[in-house]
Design a protein around this nucleic acid. Structure first.
Lengths: 344, 344
DNA sequence: TATTTTAATGAAAGCGCTTGCATCGGCAGA
DNA sequence: TCTGCCGATGCAAGCGCTTTCATTAAAATA
């Protein structure tokens, strides 16, 4: 029979301290505030730690420090380039502050989002970013009660009570509408992702309507298509809109680039030449937008910037600094080759 | 002057215990093993917790339990659909086990990847998945020393010493090559992402070569293009390959779908009709692949499955169960409309 | 040389939670 | 009515680290 064998626990600060002939206090200092430790001692500690393969155990230090150095972000899905980009930017920005990022996906479901937020709070995140909007009434209060710095990204309802970094969806879509109006378009179609639980999309529609109204124009119901995401949805939408009774739109405003690309593909399938016969605009400026042919006219949303600014805000909160609770970035029109004046 | 004000700390188990008139032990049990607590008491505890807005503090419980319920995943970037999909699948699968996911991006840099792994270990992750390959010699030993369940995903060098779930890149590319050979192609071009630090890509090239060699064929150097990722790279590559001296390839095998889409676009620009004049294949089957026109023939890699299986493996390790240390999935040929017999 | 200042270190008290062990009633069986 | 047993609970000892405070040694000053 094998003798009772104490399996070699993973090393603790205590072990390193003994190996280096110092106290745990010194071990801790050697790693966290090396300047406070004599070089010779420091080297001994590092050497001992290396031999034992010791890394400070986060739970212990989180407990003692009252912070975990972990931040959380909740997004609808990683499957959309826009969101993935933003998360990646956050991860990089947080890394500079030695903060690691916990992610949660909500699949566009407010309940799942709320659950994710709660889970993250329980994990003790030091800061929290939620993409889009606060998922449930009352949840914000829970976050506040825990004193966890918090920010909404991407969307921004002007005058929202929550700190946010993003852009004004309505304004952006008004801008793109005015651009098309300036080209001479009068009849518009609009293709949208699902508006359910998604205030951003609702705002986009409102933005288009408002710019049109300024010119005494409007959007006919049969020229509005609300459906799923993606290229296929864009194709289907275009077919349906152009097949509707009455005068045909000469410009199609799409709620995002993927829908626009779908519309573009379908236009070609239908024998239309873009932009001669039909103008199409996207939104987001995903990487494909500039690479397809004809290249898509769209609005660039700098998601890297959003991610970076959101982290900047959260970190400044963490440091107890004051910071503006609403920071807006401006989407920029990227005029490429899918827009032109309407056919005569 | 305001009196010295003790700011209301966030509640602890102690506070809940007092409010409910029980001990902290009971509070803990009420949340973790409700069956062990009398219903009436349990309700009192829950009520008190709700009023105080208490959630168990993860650091404390991690310390006591010796586990954090956090897993880590390190990937090159979230910007590629393939990786993002896998991460999302992992997040969902881990969530079923109440494990939250920490992510780190390496930007294809082995040093950054190694750093991310170390950071995650320091954060006390219970399990770790690394996409692609182990970034540095020696790192695996550190992970092992910490007894953290570990898995490599996506890539799989057959006979690798590390547990992995993925597929055999060489075999997959041999398969697609044989498919094209069967269609009658004899001269092949290949477009690849950068091979530097990326054994998977090297394996893909090897797979193509080996299938060709079986038929006594080979790949001419001027028909191999290694460049960046993306559609633009695909365009440039096709132009270069078709512009080379000597006989033209009739089939282009691309290392991923984006390159293939680029090649496809460029072929159209050059006035070639795909697949009549040229066959093009992709790899991964990203969502676009089936939605462009002509739809791309490619190989589908089920990344959701990979993510799920990886989590399954890690969780079983966590539970001390035995599990096969190498699980392979089979990429499947998806025959669509960019391949046909070569022109006469 | 005597005294003050400064730097380096150790001792020890937590941080908030879990859990083995002891305790205490109450209930079933004798 | 008494003994045993069992379910429900509390006590208290950690989990591994940080950090204040005290202590000591060394350096700077008088």
């Amino acid at each position: 029979m094998a003798a009772t064998q104490t399996l070699p626990r993973t090393a603790r600060a205590q072990d390193v301290a003994e190996a280096a002939g110092v106290s745990t206090a010194t071990v801790s200092r050697a790693f966290n505030t090396p300047a406070k430790v004599a070089p010779a001692v420091r080297d001994r500690v590092f050497a001992a730690a290396a031999i034992l393969g010791w890394l400070p155990h986060a739970a212990g230090s989180a407990l003692a420090r009252r912070r975990t150095s972990i931040a959380g972000v909740v997004i609808p899905t990683l499957g959309q380039e826009v969101f993935a980009t933003q998360v990646e930017a956050m991860q990089a920005a947080f890394a500079e502050h030695d903060i690691t990022l916990l992610i949660g996906c909500s699949n566009y479901d407010p309940d799942q989002a709320a659950q994710q937020v709660r889970t993250m709070l329980a994990r003790g995140v030091d800061a929290l970013a939620v993409l889009g909007q606060i998922p449930q009434a009352g949840l914000f209060e829970v976050v506040q009660a825990r004193r966890v710095p918090f920010v909404i990204t991407y969307g921004s309802a002007p005058g929202s009570t929550h700190p946010c970094v993003g852009f004004d969806n309505a304004t952006a879509f008004s801008e793109i509408t005015r651009y098309l109006l300036a080209l001479g378009h009068q009849i518009f179609g609009m293709i949208l992702p699902p508006t359910l639980h998604n205030e951003r999309i609702v705002a986009r529609l409102a933005g288009v309507r408002s710019a049109l109204a300024d010119e005494g124009l409007g959007l006919r119901p049969q020229h509005i298509f609300e459906g799923e995401y993606g290229i296929l949805a864009g194709r289907k939408a275009l077919r349906q809109i152009l097949g509707a009774n009455g005068p045909r739109p000469t410009a199609i405003i799409c709620g995002n680039d993927l829908l626009a690309i779908g519309a573009l593909f379908e236009a070609r399938t239908m024998g239309l030449v873009v932009p001669r016969d039909l103008s199409i605009t996207g939104f987001d400026d995903i990487s494909m937008a500039g690479e397809i042919d004809p290249a898509l006219t769209t609005m660039k949303v700098n998601n890297v910037e959003i991610g970076r600014l959101a982290v900047e805000y959260l970190v400044s909160q963490l440091c107890g600094e004051a910071a503006p609770s609403e920071v807006l970035i401006l989407p920029a029109l990227v005029e490429r080759s899918t827009t032109a004046p309407p056919p005569k």
